[in-house]
Design a binder for these strands. Structure first.
Lengths: 260, 260
DNA sequence: CTCGCTCTGTTCACTAGGCGACAGTTGCGG
DNA sequence: CCGCAACTGTCGCCTAGTGAACAGAGCGAG
């Protein structure tokens, strides 16, 4: 199973009625990508909004020196590039596929047409963006205010909850490389490893190859609460998390980022 | 003049037709706040969406130890608390007024009603949120990847552009205390001061009491470009920045944050 | 004019976190 | 079942950034 790392709670497709969904799919153009294939570059031509139909997409910002920042790994039902629909903005991220991936591309006119016919789509897009904004502000707060071990713990907690679909407090596996986490937090891998070690020493997590095991979500949650500098605001309950539970890629994932 | 610090390019009211705007104002309840008055706390009851009619509002997160993170200072036409309209989420920030301020509060049912009658409002809200998300992602990238002097320079640059309404490259004044900038970037005031000093040594800015003077926006821009680690993506042109240009508060601003 | 408050400039000892390097480990592909 | 490539663990050195503290400077109020 590939965990959609820091996947946002709500995507465009979530809570969309069947007719609107069908209309949306009919309005765009399908694209297929294979594992690791590059889709677009930051600043490139405006391709329109993209919706993930199956598979996953890494959203990242690649620096001039070749290093990369990871923003999110989006799964089915999630959209990106909305910004290109407004004010003729350029794409803001580099994107590449994780596993075999199918995408739906909607140009500005595609979108205008289908959104006009189905106002529900605008609603869903708004809802998704409001939730994403909320998530991002929380992350921003964390990064500015909390010591890194706490930021890391919160991140793992969020992902653990996501994997269990918000459910119980039992043990959870999170499939992710330490390098990806480091790219996400913007710290060096070496440092991340040390920090993970601290959490492991506390018995909150176990680390293994490309995987992090959380033996008890509740314990992790308690520890985070104790070390949180400000009041915790529960993110809105994801009314329906539409990630297909089955694994989309098997085994090891090929390098999605070009060598540096 | 009070600069709306890091104000987002597009607010709800921007690009809204007169009839929709009137309907919106008619649909909500007006509230008046005086300088420094506290509006709401993070995690408190869901009050609905709020639109700034006049004056400014500081959005922040106050930590348990009394320290605060600044997220934005919103001006006329900008909205917040949208998240409380969806999934019954709680407020995510503490908010207080800067100068005499008039607000419009829309409960969930207020919003549903007026949004139903004027779909244009949903559009505008979506547009605003998409742009904010973009801004925030950029900020997140900066904070994770760039050395602090560059982050600071970019921040000043953005504000300088905002003050001149995106116009020329001449000299600009930015009215802001160093403490606010520090709270925004999440660094100590002492360190911020040192960093500002570096920019001043380069001749890019002059600092004075509660004010930063940028002698040449172009020069600042060039320096930022040179020191940027990744490609620059221009934020979408703010089609109409609706901030009232006249100063809403005169002279010194009272403490908006409770003593600590 | 002068008091008092807020804001700025600066110092110093201390800690978090970065960077490069390298050795050990896992697991896929052949 | 072997070899290679992708990962992980760890060390040592170095800079960025902290927190507390305090003196000076700007500005509003009486």
């Amino acid at each position: 199973m590939v965990s959609s790392f820091n996947s946002y709670p709500t995507g465009l497709m979530d809570g969309l009625g069947a007719s609107a969904r069908d209309a949306l799919v009919a309005a765009g153009t399908r694209i297929r990508l294979s594992n690791g294939q590059f889709l677009q570059s930051r600043g490139a031509d405006k391709a329109g909004m993209v919706v993930v139909l199956s598979g996953h997409v890494r959203m990242m910002t690649i620096a001039r020196d070749g290093s990369a920042l990871l923003l999110a790994i989006l799964g089915p039902g999630q959209q990106f590039n909305e910004v290109t629909l407004f004010a003729g903005a350029a794409q803001t991220h580099d994107a590449s596929a994780v596993g075999d991936t199918e995408l739906l591309v909607l140009t500005e006119s595609d979108y205008e047409r289908v959104a006009g016919a189905h106002p529900e789509i605008v609603q869903a897009l708004l809802r998704s963006n409001v939730h994403r904004l909320h998530q991002l502000v929380e992350l921003l707060n964390d990064l500015r205010a909390l010591p890194k071990p706490v930021v890391l713990a919160r991140l793992l907690l969020k992902n653990a909850r996501h994997v269990t679909r918000g459910g119980g407090a039992g043990p959870v596996e999170i499939d992710i490389s330490q390098e990806d986490i480091a790219m996400f937090l913007g710290v060096s891998r070496a440092y991340l490893n040390k920090t993970l070690g601290q959490l492991a020493d506390l018995g909150l997590v176990d680390v293994s190859y490309r995987r992090i095991h959380v033996p008890d979500i509740g314990a992790l949650e308690d520890w985070v609460q104790e070390n949180l500098a400000y009041e915790s605001v529960e993110s809105p309950a994801p009314d329906a998390c539409s990630d297909t539970p089955g694994g989309t890629t098997q085994g090891r994932r090929d390098r999605a980022v070009p060598e540096r």
